[in-house]
């Protein structure tokens, strides 16, 4: 008996069909498990093990290797601020301090209500638009300390069902790595990447 919803189970079947060997579906299924529970629980990892035919310990060994599989309760909004070299040169440490101060959450932790988690990230590939930040992996480029504070206040107050990169860029962003040109029409509802085949991309984010 699966602990997952019917829709998640049918997603899992579709994902398994895309790989020649079942074990290759471990990483996508771990994102499904996160979307079910909001973070990666022991039960979720055990369920993934059932689906791909390996042991729960093997699944945990995989999950613990990658930073994006959050094995502790994580806020609805995961704010990941890049502090690698290019962002550091453009003042990322000040932006991080502003976000920590405004949210009351030090990096690596989550607030009491489970709304916001803050982490400093290694390079997220937006160096031309430093300082770069992601909320649930939806990108904002050209962030300043003040805009970082505004972002935190907005997340706390507006509490959008899902966050959309274009909307947040418009509200809080600045210089971009390149002309984005084309709008994205979906958003991310939790601390995992929004990707249609995983059922994690939420329509009508606004």
């Amino acid at each position: 008996m699966s602990i997952w919803s019917e829709s998640t189970q049918s997603r899992a079947k579709e994902i398994l069909a895309k790989y020649p060997e079942k074990r290759s579906a471990v990483m996508p299924l771990l994102y499904l498990a996160m979307a079910e529970d909001g973070w990666l629980t022991i039960e979720g990892m055990t369920e993934v093990a059932e689906w791909v035919g390996i042991t729960p310990a093997q699944v945990q060994s995989v999950a613990s290797f990658y930073t994006m599989y959050k094995r502790e309760p994580t806020g609805k909004y995961l704010v990941s601020l890049c502090t690698s070299i290019s962002c550091m040169l453009l003042g990322s440490d000040d932006v991080l301090h502003a976000i920590e101060d405004e949210s009351g959450v030090p990096h690596g932790e989550t607030d009491d209500e489970g709304v916001i988690s803050v982490e400093h990230a290694e390079c997220i590939g937006a160096c031309g638009g430093a300082v770069a930040c992601q909320v649930n992996y939806e990108l904002i480029e050209g962030l300043t300390p003040e805009k970082g504070r505004e972002l935190v206040r907005w997340l706390k107050k507006a509490r959008p069902d899902a966050v959309n990169t274009d909307e947040m860029q418009e509200l809080f962003g600045g210089r971009r790595s390149f002309d984005w040109a084309i709008q994205s029409d979906v958003g991310a509802a939790g601390p995992y990447p929004a990707f249609e085949p995983y059922g994690t991309a939420t329509e009508d984010a606004k």
Partner: peptide
């Protein structure tokens, strides 16, 4: 059978590609 492995922090590029 080809695979395109995209870093997890690139959901928008992955959506566009999909």
């Amino acid at each position: 059978h080809a695979f395109v492995y995209i870093r997890g922090e690139y959901p928008k590029p992955a959506r566009r590609l999909q």
